Amino acid sequence: MRILVVGAGAIGGYFGARLLKAGRDVTFLVRAKRAAQLAATGLIVKSPLGDIDAPRPPLIEAEALREPFDLIILSCKAYDLDGAIKSFAPAVGPNTLILPLLNGMRHLDALDQRFGAGAVLGGLCAISTALDDQGRILHFSDFANLAYGARESAQAEKAEALDKVLLNAGFDARRSGKIAQEMWEKWTFIASAGLTCLMRAAVGDIEAANGADLAVALYNECAEIATGAGFAPREPARKFAGGMLTTPGSEFVASMLRDIERGAPIEADHIVGDLLRRQGAKAEPGSVLRIAYVHLKAYEARRARETGAKAERSGA
């Protein structure tokens, strides 16, 4: 099975490197700058689960795509989705499967519209990674999980066929019979973790400030939206979220907070805004979810203003 990994960043690069080491037929779709970097240094992963050094990873740029691949693994940020779709579209044939690992659900609408729902599986991952200044992939956790599954019954056989390439590839992979449910449960949790962005603090700091009730309120609000969509979080998911969001002394923060702290783009609309949109007229003006969203949008507005001002000064 020919696999195209879109990008060789912190997530796609990690799973792609594991697949490559396991002997799978993997090619990385990269931009010119990343291609030059990888050609010079190779694809390097530093991980507690074992390092990887692939001196010459198979690379391709969008302009060179001519033939379809069997599987496309997509793990870009939501704000890069349109560009990613345009770049890998030539690699999608009548039998190609697309496995997106983005958070939330809105990306499925864009992929379905462009390629048809039958080509797009459900997927999610749990991993903590980042790129360093040298382009190496740093894996911080002792886990790397990937789940995939059919979103409709007609995809079941195709999803099962992925077992041969995704299982036993150096990370914890599993095929889920309820992938949409799991995606909603993860979405509900990470949107609730947006409280750390609002407070600019870790869970333990918020708890120390007697703010655990706000974390619970935000999670319950998100869970209510999921329930209204037909995906009420199950008890294990609720228990996990409750522990992660209220544990005294916890240093857990949303990855979006790390993006904010380094002045990077964020997925405000995809993760928090889309939940709020689905809540519709039921959203209260003072809801914690709405306040968290306004905070994120205010950050985006300020970032855009300061970036624009910097560009004007440079132009002058």
Rank of each mutant, 00 (worst) to 15 (best):
A144R: 09
G243E: 12
L166S: 03
K21F: 03
Q134C: 06
A84N: 04
E207L: 04
S153W: 02
P90Q: 04
K282W: 08
A150K: 11
S153V: 10
L74G: 09
M199Y: 12
N103F: 05
L97A: 07
G122Y: 09
T247F: 10
M183I: 12
Y148D: 03
G13T: 04
E312M: 15
G211I: 00
F88P: 09
A54Q: 13
A130R: 13
R262N: 15
T246E: 05
Y148I: 01
E224W: 06
K282N: 11
D25P: 06
G249R: 05
L296D: 06
K33W: 04
L131A: 08
F115I: 08
A17H: 00
L20R: 08
E261G: 07
G83P: 08
V120N: 09
L167T: 11
E235A: 07
Q37R: 12
D163C: 15
A147K: 15
P236D: 05
T41K: 15
G7I: 01
I3L: 01
R313N: 13
A298W: 11
A64F: 08
F189E: 06
T246S: 08
R56G: 11
P58H: 10
V288C: 11
A156E: 14
D163M: 15
M183K: 10
H270N: 14
A150D: 08
A193T: 04
I291R: 15
E182T: 02
D70V: 04
L38R: 09
R151F: 02
A229P: 03
M199W: 14
S87A: 14
Y148W: 13
F140K: 03
A117N: 07
R258W: 12
A173R: 00
F28Y: 06
I3S: 00
P68H: 02
S153T: 13
I260W: 10
V253G: 03
P58C: 10
W187F: 06
E207R: 09
E67S: 04
D133C: 02
I179P: 06
G204K: 02
L289T: 11
H270T: 14
A161C: 09
A161D: 08
P236I: 10
L74R: 07
A169D: 01
E63V: 04
A215H: 12
V294W: 13
Y219T: 02
